[in-house]
Design a protein around this nucleic acid. Structure first.
Lengths: 157, 157
DNA sequence: TTCATTTCTTGATGTACATCAAGGCAGGGG
DNA sequence: CCCCTGCCTTGATGTACATCAAGAAATGAA
């Protein structure tokens, strides 16, 4: 349980690592993502200030995700056991479940335009801080498709 | 906190209901799903024996999901508050988060064939108990697409 | 500043899956 | 028992988004 400072580009966790840490973001911005067999990145989650970023996996089993640093950041690092001892924040867990539920439903039922509009409304602060290609990756579409969606939106006004 | 018996077709919860219950499945099979603006159903989760089925939403706010009965079932019904008092099962919560994480990654990176193969491996017991069109709905594809994927697989042998 | 790298855009083409339509089959209710 | 309804499949066509390619604009390092 300590604080560390990391800079843009640092990689905190790779797929396959075991007994990975949990990171509480004090300042800066992280992302967690997977890389599929075709080499494509899929952003699973952004981690802005006050966010808890961690791969949820059992002790001693390899994790699924990469985690790296998008903006220079100050982090509190803890083992998952430490977090548990301090009394897990049930409310935070439930909110996270809720977020993921909404994400799953959106991935199944929304097209590119609807996903982007939802993202803008839900994370207005993130959108100015990351390149659009990362937004695209989070939304599950290509940068080209996102570019065209945004073009559409400005035309429509 | 009581036990109830329900039959195929019963609807336990509709989108917009508030202060909804949590259902522990003693026997039988439930499903939770959303209906999008085009009227299409998207299955969010199947609830077989020993599963906890509940919409994760704050008290007094409308829920997102429908829940209904696929196979006649015996359920233990509890308010979410009751569940909390009995000490929430952190491990179960984490496992559920893990499942959803895997689902999100799959929805973003896998095609119809890969999704189906993964489902067969992960839920071999569910697949014999529900119509294929529900599997399709869970996978985020149409029944027609699923039919063609399965045809492909049998040919390949 | 200058050069290199990354990001974003735009166009042309490709493709996986959706949609629409129709027929065969099985199960359940009357 | 029969009929109706829901399920599954198959074919024809449509479409949203991916892929490929190239150039302009922004960013950053030396």
């Amino acid at each position: 349980m300590k604080q560390i400072t990391v800079i843009k580009g640092d990689i905190l966790q790779r797929k396959g690592d075991i007994n990975t840490k949990a990171y509480i973001v004090e300042s800066g911005l992280l992302r967690s993502y997977s890389i599929d067999d075709k080499g494509k990145e899929h952003i699973y989650m952004f981690g802005p200030e006050n966010w808890l970023v961690a791969d949820i996996c059992e002790s001693n089993t390899p994790c699924q995700l990469y985690i790296d640093v998008i903006e220079d950041a100050v982090l509190t690092v803890a083992s998952k056991e430490e977090l548990m001892e301090r009394g897990p924040d049930i409310d935070a867990l439930l909110r996270r479940l809720n977020t993921m539920q909404a994400r799953i439903i959106m991935l199944m039922s929304s097209n590119a335009l609807e996903r982007y509009e939802h993202f803008v409304q839900t994370y207005p602060n993130i959108i100015q801080r990351v390149p659009l290609k990362m937004i695209a990756s989070y939304l599950g579409i290509t940068p080209e498709a996102l570019s065209r969606v945004r073009h559409q939106l400005t035309q429509r006004k």
